[in-house]
């Protein structure tokens, strides 16, 4: 397993995928408080109305909400693409030599999950910390930031990790990575829609983003249920990706 983890780390660094995730998340983290601070001035200059500008709440809480919203919309899409792209890259004939050397495809998927899952969750927590701390410098409002950083960061991080896994799953089923990204993203957003109409919203991973918007610094019963369900979903997806790849002709080039 150590050689597989080494390979994934090398790939993440040399193909600059880990940097891309980091720049994306930290970029949003630092931009959110700045945008929040500048929003009333922008609105005033555009509309010429002080009332409209004054009606927009400008505080740390709203800044963190804005960060979570942006991440939900854009980072989700990019992480689905990352997952789909990674599987497309592997199945595009690159597994021929490793498989004959004895590679276990399930072990390879687990190594990817460990390395990228760790990077996604870790970087999201850092980004959440960065947006809160930077927001405290720029905006009014203060809470006990450590618990918020911990819980909100973890909720967003696990949700993004699920998005990455859905991308991988779509990539293992569809050879074209762009099509896999589109279908993976649609599935994820559809899941969010369905979750909103049920009384068991907490069984879906999308509930993590709903909780993240509340900015609560402690655990609740539905949140813990959602964590456990998401872990179960992720485990199932990891197995499904390995199962599907084992039945895929990996000698075919990407269309």
């Amino acid at each position: 397993m150590s050689e597989l983890i080494w390979k994934e780390c090398l790939e993440g660094v040399r193909r600059k995928q880990v940097f891309a995730i980091g720049i994306l998340l930290i970029g949003f983290a630092l931009l959110s408080p700045v945008m929040m601070k500048a929003l009333p001035m922008l609105l005033e200059s555009q509309t010429g109305s002080e009332e409209i500008a004054a009606a927009i709440p400008v505080n740390l809480r709203e800044s963190v909400r804005s960060f979570a919203k942006n991440i939900h919309q854009i980072a989700t899409l990019l992480l689905v693409y990352l997952g789909a792209g990674q599987i497309a890259y592997e199945r595009n004939q690159r597994l021929v030599f490793p498989i004959h050397a004895g590679l276990n495809l399930r072990a390879m998927i687990r190594a990817k999950v460990l390395v990228y899952g760790g990077a996604i969750i870790g970087l999201t927590m850092i980004a959440t910390g960065a947006t809160i701390l930077y927001g405290m410098l720029l905006l009014p409002g203060s809470w006990k930031p450590m618990s918020i950083i911990g819980w909100t960061g973890l909720e967003i991080g696990i949700y993004l990790f699920t998005a990455y896994l859905i991308g991988m799953l779509a990539g293992s089923m569809i050879r074209n990575k762009v099509l896999a990204t589109v279908l993976g993203s649609l599935f994820l957003f559809l899941l969010g829609g369905i979750a909103g109409f049920t009384t068991f919203e907490w069984i879906f991973p999308t509930y993590l983003m709903t909780e993240a918007n509340f900015l609560i610094g402690y655990w609740t019963k539905p949140l813990m249920g959602c964590f456990l369900m998401t872990v179960a979903w992720c485990g199932l997806m990891i197995e499904a990706i390995g199962w599907k790849l084992n039945r895929t002709n990996i000698t075919m080039q990407e269309e």
Partner: peptide, 19 residues
């Protein structure tokens, strides 16, 4: 043949050997 382009030749062969 397709390879992990980011690897060096020796790294790639060592990776396959380590597998």
């Amino acid at each position: 043949p397709q390879f992990y382009e980011y690897m060096r030749a020796k790294e790639l062969l060592m990776y396959l050997g380590r597998i």
